[in-house]
């Protein structure tokens, strides 16, 4: 049976992990490869590396990092952050990334999704959407790491992106992100139940029960979290055991 995926997300700046606090078991929690190895050993199903490096020169460090990750880690990983051209993606995939995630650049130039899926297959094109529920009760697409509002509904953009060739949707709710009060159930369910491709829920994980709920009631295919794993509030192995007891199919 296909299992639900648990995905830790690592923020990377200048080739180093931004949040990676006090892991006694590893030498250097600032080293993305060390942290990735630890998560992989704990049972993470995939990893996401989000590059938040501002300058183009320093982004070259990302390719070197991707090489190191691919040679050391034996599970799939996605790389995202500032990707805007087919050449960017070719370089990351050639060096061993399994998938890339695109966000703002794809919104501004939807043809990018089609170009990427034609060139490399939709299985490696993840569309990341930052979304916020406004006072009118609707979920809107935000760009530039949540700084720029658009008038576009998230459901519409997701459906269009899938038509263009996105193979997976990584949905982050800005209302929930950082709250630890649980995932955004309504929009996750809406996308997961209507789109033909897998949906990764992100933003708001605080307890193990939140993961159970997003799988069971919002039909998410995967769930992504960062700080609860980095701060060791939840250990991935324990989380997966808990989910198995709750009859959620997971890889143990």
């Amino acid at each position: 049976m296909l299992t639900k995926r648990i995905i830790p997300c690592l923020d990377i700046k200048d080739g180093r992990t931004v949040k990676g606090i006090n892991f006694e078991s590893i030498r250097d929690a600032g080293d993305p490869v060390e942290l990735a190895k630890l998560y992989s050993e704990q049972g993470a199903d995939e990893l996401v590396f989000l590059d938040i490096t501002a300058t183009i020169e320093k982004r070259k460090a990302l390719v070197e990092l991707v090489k190191r990750i691919a040679s050391d880690i034996n599970i799939p990983f996605t790389v995202g952050g500032g990707i805007s051209t087919v050449e960017d993606v070719a370089l990351l995939l050639q060096n061993g990334a399994d998938k890339v995630s695109v966000n703002t650049a794809a919104y501004k130039n939807p043809q990018l999704i089609k170009d990427l899926s034609d060139a490399f297959g939709s299985q490696c094109v993840v569309l990341a959407i930052d979304t916020k529920k406004e006072a009118d009760g609707q979920w809107y697409v935000y760009l530039d790491g949540g700084r720029t509002k658009t008038g576009t509904l998230t459901t519409g953009w997701a459906a269009k992106a899938v038509e263009l060739g996105a193979g997976e949707i990584l949905l982050t709710s800005m209302n929930n992100d950082g709250t630890r009060n649980g995932f955004a159930m309504d929009i996750t369910a809406q996308l997961s139940n209507t789109l033909p491709v897998p949906v990764i829920a992100s933003g708001g994980a605080g307890t193990m029960m939140h993961f159970k709920e997003v799988f069971q009631y919002a039909n998410a295919d995967a769930a992504l979290a960062a700080s609860i794993f980095h701060y060791k509030d939840i250990e991935i192995g324990s989380l997966k055991k808990y989910l198995a007891q709750q009859h959620i199919p997971v890889r143990l």
Partner: peptide, 20 residues
């Protein structure tokens, strides 16, 4: 694609992506 059974939890989409 088809709807999942209760134990499968959710729709079975295409492509299959993940651990089986």
């Amino acid at each position: 694609p088809r709807e999942g059974t209760e134990s499968e939890v959710g729709k079975l989409k295409v492509p299959q992506i993940g651990w089986n």
